[in-house]
């Protein structure tokens, strides 16, 4: 069993890391089980390749498995062997049932979260100077117009947010406004969900088209307040 011990420990360690370790790394999120399965499969494949590189290591790898499945005088493992023989077909059958039975999960849909903006909204710089007064004013506008959905915490959990899919953007998340330019935000606030290109699934977003209600200057101030409040800074090309 010695040759199998290491691979088993490695697999268990890998699973523990993916399941419990990774989500605790800052800026990371829990992995979906399908992805964990894929990574484990890759790990198993790697171990298998490594173990079967040479003839000796191949035998060392296969022998315990062979002995377990067909060898004689394995003592207490005999019961386990029968267990495997019985459980394996049941597992395969259950898997088949799971993949043919009707699921109650909605079909997956692709949505480009940050589609490319039209030309006139690329590379604009914020005409409003970044002064404390302007930031305060922007935060005030944010509180009045944006916070019902995007939340007082800038985390997309405002009281009016519930029920909407996609959920309002979480600005505190480093993968939203921190990786976008100010001109991108200007485009999104001005044109709203209706102004998204087709790959952005415009039929789903509830984001209002603020150009009909707010002057450009306010929008720029809101952008200042948004970055400040969410403790992020816009992406720049310098």
């Amino acid at each position: 069993m010695g040759a199998l011990g290491k691979p088993i420990i490695l697999m268990v360690a890998m699973y523990a890391f993916l399941k419990f370790g990774l989500p605790n790394i800052p800026g990371s999120a829990p992995l979906p089980s399908s992805l964990i399965f894929l990574y484990l499969l890759l790990t198993a494949g790697g171990i298998f390749m490594f173990k079967t590189l040479s003839g000796e290591s191949k035998d060392a790898f296969w022998d315990p498995i062979r002995r377990f499945l067909t060898g004689e005088n394995i003592g207490g493992l005999q019961a386990l062997r029968y267990g495997v023989f019985i459980l394996f077909p049941l597992l395969v059958g259950w898997q088949t049932y799971g993949s043919t039975a009707v699921s109650d999960l909605p079909p997956t849909e692709s949505r480009t979260i940050h589609p490319a903006p039209p030309g006139e909204y690329t590379g604009l710089s914020n005409p409003v100077p970044k002064t404390p007064e302007n930031i305060m004013q922007g935060k005030g506008f944010y509180a009045a117009y944006c916070s019902p959905c995007h939340g007082g915490n800038f985390d997309g959990k405002g009281p009016a947010a519930r029920g909407f899919i996609p959920a309002p953007a979480n600005f505190a998340d480093p993968t939203t406004i921190a990786m976008l330019q100010e001109s991108y935000l200007f485009w999104r606030i001005k044109k709203g969900g209706v102004g998204l290109p087709i790959e952005g699934a415009p039929w789903k977003s509830a984001m209002p088209r603020w150009e009909v209600e707010l002057p450009d200057e306010w929008i720029w101030k809101i952008i200042l307040g948004e970055y400040d409040g969410a403790h992020q800074s816009p992406r720049t090309w310098e």
Binding site: T96, Y97, V102
Partner: peptide, 20 residues
């Protein structure tokens, strides 16, 4: 519920047993 939903798993499980 189509019959296949029940038939396939059984067929496959029996197949695996035969293979074993």
């Amino acid at each position: 519920v189509p019959q296949e939903t029940y038939i396939y798993p059984v067929v496959i499980a029996v197949g695996v047993v035969l293979l074993e």
